[in-house]
Design a protein around this nucleic acid. Structure first.
Length: 949
DNA sequence: TGGCGCTCCTA
DNA sequence: GTAGGAGCGCCAA
């Protein structure tokens, strides 16, 4: 700390608002019905600042009566600011009372805003040689920054950042902080009701500022501008100057900085205590006392949470825990949590007897592992440095095999030492006869795989179990614990903060907290397992769990670890081509529109198309009142207006570029040079997988331009080739088989083109005379059936009118009567049982099936038809994946399974194995499940994914 | 900074 | 009409 004296000026309302909204989802209401969110939030921030910075001078500044001057200048100033929430209004007197008790000066001047007061005081203090820190999240203050004046800005997730001149220059792209005023004046600020220049947003403001340096200079040189922008800005010169004035913080408020008054001294503790007790701030009071107790004594105090090194720390009903948590940061969530107990009587680690121990290295570890090896079933949970298992390092592993009891093995940061420790655990993980229990084991398996440890033996994954028991719910552990165990676990945010750049690593958490958190997770997971085990017994769920989802978990882990090779160079060149084409289209569109605008903004686009160009008499609107500009609507207009086609092309190319061509290379994992998607096994209600980070299940294929992206997916080396294996028409085959519709079954048995066959029967023409259009319509109906058709939907999809569509559907049902029966049976089954199921007994519950609302009920009925079909297809490919993986393992093949896209599997095939693999894959896929209808798989090979199709 | 609406990509 | 994920704009309250 330098010798220079430091003054902290707190922007009260900004912090009060911030604190209030931090609790907005879970407002703090005390027993007297008072909403204390704002008070709590503000006090947390204030104490935090005091604790971190120990300022010698501090004042809190408030607004009073708005700014008379500004209102005079511009009547709309802050006019449309929402009414201050009730919870904030009621908080102010309490906050003032606390500040008084703390002997902290409250600075407020009638008719001035806190900005102006702070601005003025900071300048005065600067003259007296102070360094001033303006405590506020508000960016407007950037204009006040000098060598001695800083913004002290709270950041999300806890912590603060200090903005000096350099930071301001960087953030706003300006030469000096004063230009922030010009910047705000140009851009405007809707929350402060600064109008700004019309059509100028953040980006344009930065551009103009770089070019002209100030508002005045810009307005003096508008003749240099072009097009619409010139017009708009020339027409708004007055507004521009006014905006700048409104954005300027005043430095001549009649207040005076008296250093003596601003000195931070000891609070009136009895008074503060009384107020806090009145408000029922137990946690905050403890925090407060600690903050000022340290102040009063010396700064030597060591943290109470410093654990004695690696010592076992058994704890029965930890009562001291809460106080310790609030020592450093995280005050908000901690106090929220402890308050929650009193409100809901939900159990937590604080209120539940438990015995969680960390295990010391050396002999203790040896003894622990010996004990571990004697178990038959153990729950474990890895704690790591990252949610991405490919880069995650082990921080520790928790184990539990008895409810309420468990152990935590911390891992050294040194890689070799960590590997040595994991070697000691290898016999446990690779023991076939010890059951391993966990929540989302795929993650742990992938982490351990990076340490070359395989997890063998029977598995029980509580997340998968719950997915089968109740697919519609969410399956994260906190939800499960609260639902099934009435228990609220310690939140991860409590330990490492909210996500954001200030989030800590698990490594930074004190061992004692790591232990409490990690072992609690293992303990809870163990309890959940005992709970779900019973529920799984029902129906076919147990089989589905044991035979499909659990084995699949290992398969997916392997596929994800494997990743796929990506031709980045190719994508980069594709990106350049797209960039050029997009630029060209942009130029054309601006010319056609007569002005520049953001084509990617549906709002702006709609205004141009329908307000300015008036392409349509009565444009359609979306539910939010904007003009609808979706593809199907624009397509109608394309033939009449050149601009429409250009816009559609622009959209298509931009989408391609941003979502695929530019995004994929950024998803390449540096450590492997490959793209590793994450398959979600528990999100799709039907039993399908989903893929993300990146989503490799929606790579374009339909358009020529789009499918080029597939060329970027290539084999691992020249010795390999890609194999794509597709189920042909699997969903139609399933519905044919399940409905026992012989006509359709026979068509499949004879290997006919099913859509042509359907057309032939429906339109009553010989199959060889079916026209393109007839086949296309038949195809649409075939797909419509799978989704639960309506005449309305069909006519939307085809050129047919509503009545023609109805007729087509009727004929279709007449042709395939059993299919229709089957569909109504499914709906009946759902009505009677409340669920439908797949061939393997995977259930989807349909609560809305008996709804009195026809729209809601209709949706449930379509689900009743679609879920068994889509879900059965998902079951079947899962079986195939498990069997193929097994064969690839036992056969010691170099070939790897890489991707699954619902009805397709992609393999990286070692060329010498190609013929064997082709037979293996086709056989396993076609025989994964026995149906009345043969399953057919088409194979394709190639040096990229497109060629393999 | 987060959430929502819109749009668009897949099976 | 079914099932998903993602990017972008836009506005918070």
């Amino acid at each position: 700390m330098s010798d220079q004296k430091r003054l902290f000026l707190v922007d009260a309302y900004a912090l009060i608002f911030r604190g209030y909204y931090a609790f907005i989802k879970n407002p703090r209401i005390n027993s007297k019905g008072l909403d204390t969110s704002a008070i709590m939030g503000f006090m947390n921030s204030l104490l935090d600042v005091i604790k971190r910075e120990r300022p010698d001078h501090l004042a809190v500044c408030f607004d009073k009566g708005g700014s008379a001057d500004r209102v005079e200048m511009f009547e709309a100033y802050k006019a449309n600011r929402d009414e201050t929430p009730e919870g904030i209004k009621t908080a102010i007197p309490h906050i003032c009372e606390i500040l008084k008790a703390m002997h902290i000066p409250i600075m407020v001047k009638d008719g001035y805003e806190a900005d102006d007061v702070i601005g003025t005081l900071s300048r005065q203090a600067e003259k007296e040689g102070y360094k001033t820190y303006m405590v506020t999240p508000d960016k407007d203050f950037a204009q006040l920054v000098t060598e001695n004046i800083f913004i002290y800005r709270p950041v999300f997730g806890g912590g603060y950042e200090t903005w000096g001149i350099e930071e301001v220059k960087k953030k706003f792209e300006v030469e000096n902080p004063l230009q922030v005023i010009d910047f705000l004046g140009m851009m405007g600020d809707s929350s402060d009701n600064i109008p700004g220049l019309p059509g100028v947003g953040e980006k344009t403001a930065k551009k103009l500022l770089a070019e002209y340096g100030s508002m005045e200079n810009l307005l003096a040189n508008t003749h240099e501008l072009k097009g619409k922008m010139k017009e708009k800005i020339e027409g708004a010169k007055e507004l521009g100057l006014l905006s700048k004035k409104l954005a300027t913080i005043m430095l001549d408020v009649p207040v005076t900085f008296h250093a003596k008054d601003f000195e931070l001294d000891q609070p009136d503790l009895p008074k503060v205590t009384e107020i806090f007790q009145e408000l029922e701030f137990r946690q905050l009071l403890a925090n407060f006392e600690k903050t000022f107790a340290v102040e009063a004594t010396s700064s030597e105090t060591t943290s109470a949470s410093n654990t004695t090194e690696l010592k076992a720390t058994p704890k029965e009903t930890a009562s001291a825990g809460a106080g310790q948590f609030s020592l450093f940061g995280g005050d908000i969530s901690t106090s929220k949590e402890t308050e929650t107990i009193s409100e809901f009587t939900r159990k937590t680690a604080e209120t539940t007897s438990h015995f969680y121990q960390s295990v010391a290295s050396g002999m203790a570890t040896k003894l622990f592992i010996k004990n571990l090896m004697n178990q038959t079933s153990v729950c474990f949970d890895t704690e790591t440095t990252d949610i991405n298992p490919l880069v995650a390092e082990l921080v520790g592993i928790a184990f539990s095999w008895e409810v309420g009891k468990g152990f935590y093995l911390p891992f050294p940061e040194n890689k070799e030492e960590a590997q040595e420790l994991i070697e000691q655990l290898r016999p446990f993980f690779e023991n076939e006869s010890i059951q391993k229990i966990g929540q989302n084991l795929k993650y742990d398996i992938k982490v351990l795989a990076k340490y070359h440890v395989e997890v063998k033996g029977k598995l029980f994954d509580t997340m998968l179990a719950h997915y089968l028991i109740n697919p519609d719910m969410r399956h994260n552990m906190d939800v499960l614990a609260e639902t099934y165990l009435n228990y609220t676990p310690i939140s991860i945010e409590n330990l490492i903060g909210k996500k954001g750049k200030n989030q800590l690593s698990m490594r930074d958490v004190p061992l004692e907290k790591q232990t409490e958190y990690a072992v609690e997770d293992a303990d809870i997971t163990l309890q959940l397992k005992e709970h779900f085990e019973k529920e799984l017994g029902e129906a076919n769920t147990q089989k589905l769990f044991d035979d499909i989802e659990i084995p699949l978990l290992r398969v997916l882990a392997a596929m994800e670890l494997e990743g796929i090779n990506l031709d980045e160079k190719f994508l980069n060149s594709l990106s350049e081509q797209l960039e050029n084409d997009i630029k060209d289209l942009e130029t054309k569109i601006y010319a056609e529109a007569g002005e520049t605008f953001n084509i990617a903004s549906p709002k702006q686009l709609g205004d141009i198309l329908f307000d300015k160009l008036k392409l349509v008499d009565k444009p359609k609107k979306t539910k939010t009142g904007q003009y609808a500009t979706s593809e199907d609507i624009l397509s109608y207009l394309a033939k009449d207006h050149a601009i429409i086609q250009h816009i559609l092309d622009f959209r298509g190319l931009s989408k391609l570029k941003s979502t695929y061509v530019d995004a994929l290379p950024t998803q390449v994992e540096p450590s492997t040079g490959r793209v590793h998607t994450d398959y979600m096994q528990t999100v799709a209600a039907t039993g399908r997988l989903s893929s993300n980070n990146p989503n490799l299940q929606n790579i374009p294929i339909r358009t020529e331009r789009g499918r080029q992206v597939r060329k970027a997916f290539i084999p691992r080396s020249e010795d390999y080739i890609l194999l794509a294996a597709d189920y042909s028409q699997i969903e139609l085959r399933i519905i044919a088989a399940l409905s026992k519709e012989e006509t359709m079954i026979n068509a499949f048995k004879n290997g006919e083109d099913i859509h042509a066959s359907t057309a032939s029967k429906v339109f009553n023409v010989p199959i060889e005379e079916v026209t393109r259009e007839q086949r296309s319509n038949a195809k649409t109906v075939n797909f419509g059936i799978i989704y639960g058709v309506s005449a309305f939907g069909l006519s939307n999809q085809t050129d047919l009118s509503r009545s023609e569509s109805k007729e087509l559907i009727d004929t279709y049902y007449a042709t395939y009567p059993k299919l229709r029966n089957y569909m109504s049976e499914l709906v009946d089954f759902a009505r009677d049982n409340g669920y439908v199921q797949t061939v393997l007994g995977r259930r989807r519950y349909l609560n809305d099936i008996n709804s009195r609302n026809a729209v809601v009920r209709g949706a449930a009925e379509r689900n009743a038809v679609n879920a068994p079909i889509q879900g059965s297809a998902a079951d079947i490919i899962k079986i195939a994946m498990i069997n193929i993986y097994e064969k690839l393992q036992t056969g010691n093949f170099k070939t790897k399974m890489l991707l699954q896209v619902h009805d397709e599997l992609v393999f990286d095939v070692y060329k010498p194995e190609l013929e064997t693999i082709k037979t293996l894959v086709k056989t396993e896929m076609e025989n994964a499940y026995k149906l009345e209808v043969p399953l057919d798989v088409e194979l394709g090979i190639g040096n990229d994914w497109l060629e393999a199709h």
